[in-house]
């Protein structure tokens, strides 16, 4: 007797908003893998832009750099990180001196670094998952 084919299901880390991801890509896990790969591919460059802006205490550039990376987190379901970026962007908008941002900057950079590790793990898992036949 043949068993009906069950759809492959991937369980994301609880830090990732999987409902949101499914709303964007349905169950196209191959494409999700690609999205994670592209995001990781550009991550260091985008993070470097943030660090350089901070090093030169250039608040408008810092705001721009964070603004650029922000939606990338939405595309990989890290909606909380996207929100943190937005809040940091708002702080940049309001502050007059880079010194006021020191704590928030440290926090956002730590969040970004943590997100990168998570994305690397999830990307590796997705890759393995997609390589496994039904």
């Amino acid at each position: 007797m043949n068993n009906p084919t069950l759809p492959k299901i991937f369980i994301f880390s609880e830090k990732i908003d999987s409902d949101y991801l499914f709303s964007l890509y349905a169950d196209d896990f191959d494409y999700m893998e690609e999205v994670f790969a592209v995001t990781l591919q550009h991550f260091d460059q985008d993070l470097e832009a943030i660090e350089m802006a901070w090093a030169s205490r250039d608040i408008p550039e810092l705001k721009k750099a964070v603004h650029k990376i922000k939606p990338a987190f939405g595309f990989v379901g890290l909606t909380d990180v996207q929100q943190s970026c937005k809040e940091f962007e708002d702080e940049c908008q309001q502050c007059a001196d880079a010194g006021e941002l020191k704590t928030s900057y440290k926090q956002i950079v730590a969040t970004l670094a943590e997100s990168k590790s998570l994305l690397e793990i999830e990307h590796r898992r997705l890759k393995e998952f997609n390589a496994t036949p039904l």
Binding site: L24, V38, T39, Q41, H42, P71, A72, F75
Partner: peptide, 13 residues
């Protein structure tokens, strides 16, 4: 669009 992942997604849509 300067965000690659966004441009790719848009192209796909």
């Amino acid at each position: 669009e300067d965000l690659q992942v966004a441009a790719d997604y848009l192209g796909r849509c």
